[in-house]
Nucleic acid binder design. Structure first.
Lengths: 243, 243
DNA sequence: TTGGATCCATTTTTGGATCCCA
DNA sequence: TGGGATCCAAAAATGGATCCAA
């Protein structure tokens, strides 16, 4: 595992968005090998004991340390660059431990979308993945960030994503959203996402009438992101930068 | 003006919703003649110096003292009773000093409504008006509540409201929302309502496409509510209960 | 393993209205 | 005077994700 020596202090100028892709990548490279504890110090946050009550903590602190304009809604994290940032928790073998949230399912509005205009496509066009050690027995403060990966879907990935998305479009717009389980989809899946199982949003039934149904979101399957990481980091002179 | 003597202390059990219309009216009657300062003590709120930075304060404290389930969204304030609560600021002659907010205009959804299914109709079917002294030179803490008025629109009022609403429906669904000013409507009007003049929502243009436009809301004209108060409180043995 | 459930921070919307200048 | 602008609190939605039981 790559550990940075003490003299390689994590020095960053936060709060200003990166002016170019090169600058963003340079910042992300500088982060690699450093721990979440170090990142926390830089952004002035306490490290939580565990993630049970702080599930989005890693994503938020990494956004801030990279200068993402913390929650620029309905746009990529770096709007000028058209890049979406995703931290991805990995095990000791570098495999994703979780699926990756993409965006919520616009239950009543999806009928007005096409694949190229969809939020899923817009978010996934360019993603900066940052792997983060996530073996459960390692304390959060000592978990290290890996090498960043700026990814865009290739023709093969695009075909699969579009196929999945269009199948969901068909089901959702025809009123079958309640029959959609997380089993569907090769790369993309739809899962519940809300405050709890009682949360409700408006959806469309088979007659086109609105009704209350649990909120849902699109996720990338862990098997899909695993393949992305494998492909990229198996190139010569490349790697996760972790163990 | 009716002033309650000190021994008539304002004693209420807050936090529990009234179980019947009779109970709600009894509570509202007990409030009449008491001041906003007294109400503030009961609900444990500070009285603001003026309303420039606390515009909805009166409505909120009166809701709470009457046991309205503070913001039961998309429903009347007393869902079990089907009653909407409105405080109404009146001058020394008992005339409304302001128009009355009804609900926001569902710009993209209005096409799917009819008068009987509309939120305007649902909210106005039964309203409990509570007059509140509002001459500008009277300190807020000493302003008194008047006699409550449980109102339902009569056939004449209903006809006017429906006519107004359907004219707005026509304009909004045909894409002319931006040409609607507060001059339109006999009883009901549409006015901007948002954080500020730069706020934007989605609306429908003449082609049926969505576009950004200022958020708007339905209001009852002061002249309309003035007539409601006049009619009701000019009945024998009835009155505002103020001066 | 993984599908369904859940958690926090932050932004946006809604509901309560009154302000204020042409 | 009243039409357009504005203000606050609270709820809901959104975006960041991880938890956990079968």
């Amino acid at each position: 595992m790559r550990k940075r020596a003490p003299e390689e202090r994590l020095v960053v100028s936060t709060s200003d968005p990166p002016g170019s892709v090169a600058e963003l990548l340079a910042r992300a490279d500088r982060l690699a090998g450093h721990t979440l504890g170090e990142v926390a110090v830089v952004v002035g946050e306490q490290v939580p004991e565990d993630f049970r009550r702080a599930k989005g903590w890693t994503g938020r602190v990494v956004e801030r340390v990279l200068g993402a304009h913390a929650s620029s809604r309905a746009e990529p994290d770096f709007p000028r660059l058209g890049i979406e940032l995703k931290t991805i928790p990995v095990d000791r073998e570098g495999r994703p431990r979780e699926s990756t949230f993409v965006c919520s399912v616009p239950l009543t509005q999806m009928a007005f979308e096409t694949w190229p205009t969809s939020l899923v496509f817009k978010k996934l066009k360019r993603v900066l993945f940052i792997p983060v050690q996530a073996d459960p027995d390692r304390p959060i403060a000592s978990r290290r960030l890996g090498n960043p990966l700026l990814w865009s879907p290739g023709a093969d990935d695009l075909a699969i994503l579009q196929e999945d998305w269009e199948a969901f479009l068909d089901l959702v717009t025809r009123g079958f959203v309640e029959s959609v389980t997380a089993h569907r989809g090769t790369a993309l899946q739809i899962r519940p996402k809300g405050k709890n199982a009682r949360a409700r949003r408006w959806g469309l039934d088979e007659e086109g009438d609105v009704f209350r149904t649990p909120p849902r979101a699109f996720y990338l399957r862990a098997s899909f992101t695993a393949q992305i990481l494998r492909r990229s980091f198996m190139l010569p002179s490349s790697g996760l930068g972790l163990r």
